[in-house]
Simulated assay, not measured.
Amino acid sequence: MSSWIEFEPMSDSHKGIDTAVSRGSGCTSLYSGSKHEASLRDLSPSIDSPVSPPLIWSKLRAYGRDAFSEFFGTMILILFGNGVVAQVLLSHGQKGDYQSISWGWGLGVMLGVYASGASGAHINPAVTFANCVFRGFPWRKFPIYALSQLLGAMCGAAIVYGNYKSAIDVFEGGANIRTVPGYSTTATAGIFCTYPADFMTKTGQFFSEFLASAILMFMIFALKDDGNLGAGPLTPLALFFVIFGIGACFGWETGYAINLARDFGPRLVSYMLGYGHEVWAAGNYYFWVPMVCPFLGCTFGGWIYDLFLYTGLDSPINTPWMGIKRLFRPFYRKKGALQNPV
């Protein structure tokens, strides 16, 4: 489960907070008089300016902050999402029901968004992709974001497994027994990733995930559109209700993955933990559906919103030929350069 929203990255003014604080906390006294300055330098010869050089880790953190942000945001999402499924399933429904799962995933998205605001809080490769297509997000960042989200989801799933391992052993009937829905009445693989209901056809699986993903992206763009009502600083809370609503209204048939990282990452972890080939074969090889449909659904939902409601000039929908002319602009420039050397 996932969702996602893009916040503005930290500005240069915020990055300079430490500098501003240091200048306003007594360090300017270094230049209040030559005698005082000399005495300080005698005590600490390394002091040459009121601002200390940045630490090596600070430089590394600044360089990789987007990746770290998406990693931990997605990890938080999975911790709450997989955690609530584990608690409801392993307690045999005594500690919650399906509505609890919807609440848990909604909280996971909201808190994951708060944790990863520095990078835009996508926590979903399909949301990053839609922002690249419709909001001018740099394509060069897409692989970094997607990989960070995938690794964060895998880490979150592994932590949930470690926390509930003893309960899984009891529920499955043994420490070496790990089963998948559709192959056992005590299967626990559904804690980590989604599996479709037995009656679902491949067409039904595809449409269910496509529809939920389209609703998700449509609402994300709506919540971030200041030309519409917009949610402003309440966007994370609004996303909580979006995810809760998708789960409560459209989640039963396939588990509403709507996120490649959320589904494939934990699925891969469950395979590595010994759940076997069935994690791929279950549901007539359903595993590829939550990998493909979120990209198609989120792109379609974003396109629908921009086509009918969005008026911002950053969307290709509001450019000549709905962005097609802009897409081929490099080709025309190259052709013109060959025809007119001047």
Score class of each variant (00 low, 15 high):
89 L>Y: 08
129 F>M: 14
63 Y>H: 12
116 S>W: 04
117 G>W: 06
74 T>M: 11
156 G>C: 02
60 L>V: 10
57 W>Q: 10
81 G>C: 06
79 L>R: 12
48 D>S: 15
102 S>Q: 14
81 G>D: 08
70 E>K: 04
74 T>F: 02
84 V>L: 03
53 P>E: 12
105 W>S: 02
62 A>Q: 05
130 A>E: 12
79 L>I: 14
113 V>Q: 12
136 G>I: 10
153 A>Y: 06
136 G>R: 09
137 F>V: 11
149 Q>N: 13
68 F>P: 00
141 K>F: 02
124 N>D: 08
48 D>A: 13
113 V>Y: 01
146 A>I: 04
141 K>G: 01
50 P>F: 09
70 E>A: 04
148 S>R: 03
89 L>W: 08
146 A>T: 13
93 G>W: 07
131 N>Q: 11
154 M>I: 06
151 L>F: 15
51 V>P: 03
131 N>L: 14
154 M>R: 03
157 A>Q: 09
88 V>W: 01
42 D>Q: 13
73 G>S: 02
128 T>H: 08
83 G>N: 03
71 F>P: 02
158 A>M: 13
103 W>E: 10
113 V>A: 14
100 S>W: 00
86 A>V: 10
56 I>Q: 13
93 G>S: 11
103 W>D: 08
128 T>S: 15
117 G>Q: 13
67 A>P: 01
76 I>W: 08
114 Y>Q: 08
79 L>H: 10
80 F>G: 04
103 W>R: 08
44 S>T: 12
53 P>M: 06
138 P>S: 04
142 F>W: 14
106 G>N: 04
153 A>M: 05
67 A>E: 08
125 P>S: 07
75 M>R: 01
142 F>L: 15
66 D>I: 07
86 A>T: 08
96 G>P: 05
136 G>Y: 11
90 L>Q: 04
116 S>Q: 06
76 I>Q: 08
55 L>D: 07
109 V>Q: 02
100 S>L: 00
110 M>V: 00
139 W>R: 02
106 G>V: 05
132 C>K: 11
122 H>L: 11
60 L>Q: 11
138 P>L: 04
156 G>R: 02
58 S>E: 06
110 M>R: 01
92 H>S: 12
113 V>S: 09
120 G>W: 06
91 S>V: 02
102 S>L: 13
154 M>C: 09
139 W>P: 00
152 G>V: 07
45 P>G: 13
87 Q>M: 09
